[in-house]
Design a protein around this nucleic acid. Structure first.
Length: 227
DNA sequence: CAGTCGATTCACT
DNA sequence: GTGAATCGACTGA
């Protein structure tokens, strides 16, 4: 048995640390999703850290609401939110209750249950696209708001858990700005990924949505951005 | 209470 | 590279 095959779930103390330590430490580890149809396992290749209420890019920035409540809860729990009217994204909550830190799981390689994942991700052309992107990862794993707030350190039978395994080699980890995050938070290099892995999603800068232009949308938008 | 827009993805040009 | 899809949480009046 190699070190990397330890299938003990990570315990709560793993997540009760600064989120900038936890995020890169999650890369290479295996996320396990148990469903009635069977298990799906994903080797994590891309994550983003959201560092408490002082982080302008975080859902917790403007304080606790009904949606982000689980982010303010104890570590080792899931924070699942619904976005763009059709997608879900999965975070793992870090730090003690009240601190509101979390790691967004952005991408990974499906290493078990590919067929099951493919039934939910029929448009994926290649296997490495099954969980290439945060909403794709949640879709492939069958994660929705029913899992919001659940304990991911409840043992091997939990609907969601992360195996001890072994983290990615430190010299394979890269970091840079977070995808789709604008404003002040855009400069923090808190996105972490495994170098040269095909399951890592492409970086995209934040794009403010266009308004309902009355006269000349393109000109107005250009003016807006320049201003 | 109406308007805005999102930690995105997909189809199409 | 651009725009549509789609809905509910959040914001400010």
């Amino acid at each position: 048995m190699t070190v990397g095959s330890d299938r003990t779930p990570l315990d709560r103390s793993f997540f009760d640390r600064p989120v900038l330590e936890v995020a890169p430490d999650l890369l290479g580890r295996v996320l396990v999703r148990l469903t009635p149809q069977g298990p799906i396992e994903v080797r994590l290749t891309e994550v983003e850290a959201y560092d408490g209420m002082a982080d302008p890019g975080s859902h917790a920035y403007r304080g606790r609401t009904e949606r982000n409540a689980s982010m303010f809860g104890p570590p080792g729990h899931a924070y699942v939110y619904f976005t763009y009217g059709m997608w879900h994204c999965l975070n793992l909550v870090c730090r003690e209750a009240g601190v509101a830190s979390g790691v967004l799981l952005r991408a990974g390689e499906v290493i078990r249950g590919q067929e099951l994942a493919r039934t939910r991700r029929a448009t994926a052309r290649k296997d490495h696209e099954l969980a290439k992107g945060p909403a794709r990862l949640a879709t492939a794993l069958g994660v929705d708001r029913e899992l919001n707030g659940i304990d991911i350190c409840a043992g091997p039978k939990a609907p969601l858990s992360v195996l001890q395994g072994a983290p990615a080699q430190a010299d394979r980890v890269r970091n840079g700005p977070r995808t789709g995050v604008g404003g002040e938070g855009a400069t923090h290099p808190w996105r972490f990924w495994v170098s040269d892995d095909p399951s890592v999603s492409p970086y995209r800068a934040h794009v403010p949505r266009r308004r309902n232009g009355s006269a000349s949308p393109t000109k107005l938008d250009a003016k807006r951005r320049g201003a």
